[in-house]
Design a protein around this nucleic acid. Structure first.
Lengths: 190, 190
DNA sequence: ACGCCGACTTGACAGCGTCAAGCCGACCGC
DNA sequence: GCGGTCGGCTTGACGCTGTCAAGTCGGCGT
């Protein structure tokens, strides 16, 4: 129960999105929930996009931490596999953050360099793990490998969180089982 | 230059999104561009979501057609690879449609069964190609293969259209080259 | 004691999606 | 030929939104 308004605003925003979806995020409703006037949040955030940007930055940081924490194991391949699994798990655990992170129409990354940097840090984790896994590959091939791994986990995550796969596996247990199968299938070939 | 308002509204919507992004889509602006009063579009569409739903349905149909058209080749593996390539190419060629298609907060699929059906048809194309490619696999494994292929192309497409990969490859030629490398790398292992 | 300044409030404005009602010309049955 | 219905559209209003502009007020430094 933090008392300072800035974090109250952020917390209320997350909760509002969780309840009503992205379209439900409203400056005025956030202010209402924080018990302040409709302009008070503007003291801490330039505009609505700035609130979203703060959440996106936090989301990328959380994602990096999760991937780092998961990236241990006996072989580079196993580390990569676990980091990928952590990527998808993060999306399922924190759908609000994940959704915001890849919706550039809400943030306009160029306005918020901190967000871009946080995204780059997450990307760097993946890149490092791929490099360790295939240290002798040519540059173009390594780029392709990074994109391939990232696409796989990102696609799986978005299809589950926002897309038809989420509707197909409404039950959380079946969902995680499916994720493990897909990742295993992929990992055994790379 | 169609004269009937319904298609004029849809066309204006697409153009508006192309110019100003998803947030720029406004009933009133669409009406203005069609040269009618702000309520005229409501004669053909229940609300804003219905316009989006019509575009999403069209998008899924276009995607199915593109995949079907691309899915020819000497082997089932090659057909699958080409359909996947067509998926990504569709996203790059028609970013407006593609973005709309996977943004469920705008449509609420349950309200629009036609959209859901069109999505299922696209899914069925992919499923069929995977089945032809691995006809003797167990059901669970086939599900995992479908998800894996779909995740790969979907992830690559969204990262290029909306995500950081798009920023990394601003030039269209480099982009398609990268797509081909990633898909080739993936296809040679499955 | 005074002025400043951070933290907030109050008020206003344009634009939005949408409900409600009205207008008008074309077609149909009589 | 004519009243009635109806599709296709307009006009007007409502509450909501994000945001600009200006004001209030308590504590702190000098």
């Amino acid at each position: 129960m933090t008392t300072d308004l800035k974090s109250q605003v952020l917390e209320a925003s997350v909760q509002l999105i969780a309840e009503q979806g992205l379209a439900g995020l409203s400056m005025r409703e956030v202010a209402r929930r924080a018990g302040v006037s409709h302009q008070a949040p503007y003291h801490y955030f330039d505009d609505k996009a700035a609130i979203v940007a703060a959440l996106v930055e936090r989301g990328f940081t959380l994602l990096s931490e999760r991937m780092e924490a998961a990236a241990h194991g006996s072989s580079p391949g196993q580390k990569l596999e676990r980091a990928g699994h952590a990527y998808v798990t993060f999306a399922l655990d924190e759908p609000v953050y994940f959704r915001l992170m890849f919706r550039p129409e809400l943030t306009d990354l160029r306005r918020f360099p901190g967000v871009e940097a946080a995204g780059a840090r997450a990307y760097a984790v993946l890149e490092r793990l791929v490099d360790e896994h295939a240290p002798r590959a040519a540059q173009a091939k390594r780029d392709a490998m990074v994109s391939m791994h990232w696409s796989l986990v990102h696609g799986l995550a978005t299809l589950l969180v926002d897309g038809p796969l989420g509707a197909e596996f409404p039950d959380a247990a079946a969902r995680t089982r499916h994720v493990e199968q897909v990742i295993k299938l992929f990992a055994t070939s790379f």
